[in-house]
Amino acid sequence: MLKAENLTKQYGEHIALDRLNLEIKAGEVYCLLGSNGAGKSTTINIFLGFIPASDGRALIDGQEVSVNNAATRNMVAYIPEIVNLYPTLSGMENLEYFSALSGFRHTKQQLQSYMQTAGLQSSALDNRVSSYSKGMRQKVGIAIALVKKAKALFLDEPTSGLDPHASNEFSQIITRLSEQGVSTLMATHDLLMAKNLGNRIGIMHKGRLRHEMTANEVSDADLTKLYIDVVKEVI
């Protein structure tokens, strides 16, 4: 579903992403670990078409992002660390807007049901987003992904700052989406979440994928050790 072939991003002399190769199958959750500046967000930004790759290819469902950006954009959803929405609009209005921009016409009931699936309590639906907590915004972000019927989900530090309950809720939703065949590429610092949620885990350093493993084949302790070793290299 998602494929990176020798994906490279260079800013002048600085190499942000160095010949990255990875493949994520439908329904798979791939967690990218790494310190700040390791190249996780750059990878996501290239897949989303926000920045062009200097070399290599990013493919979504067989279509190259740089060639068919309009088509690939419609297949993906993106949830950043802080889901930024229009503060003067309500959660429902934000959802309705992004749903319409993705070419979907949903009834109010359908939108409400997406919000419920994302876990947002119905009493908050018509409140302005400016009054929402971070967790509530994340849920709207998930609802936007649901409404788009995205085939691939890109998450950039999605649980950073969420309380354990909200983080757990978030994991459950991602698991459900994964079961429905949605591929997920998640950049995170949260080792526990990566271990519990991911099917596969990659550890990046200085733009390169240094370690790659399935979540089942590594223990919590080994994963922590590997990660700390990489972080130490940075320090």
Partner: peptide, 14 residues
Amino acid sequence: ENGTIKLLLGSKVG
């Protein structure tokens, strides 16, 4: 400033 540009440009709309 709201940070909505990524969501906006990431949608289908041109």
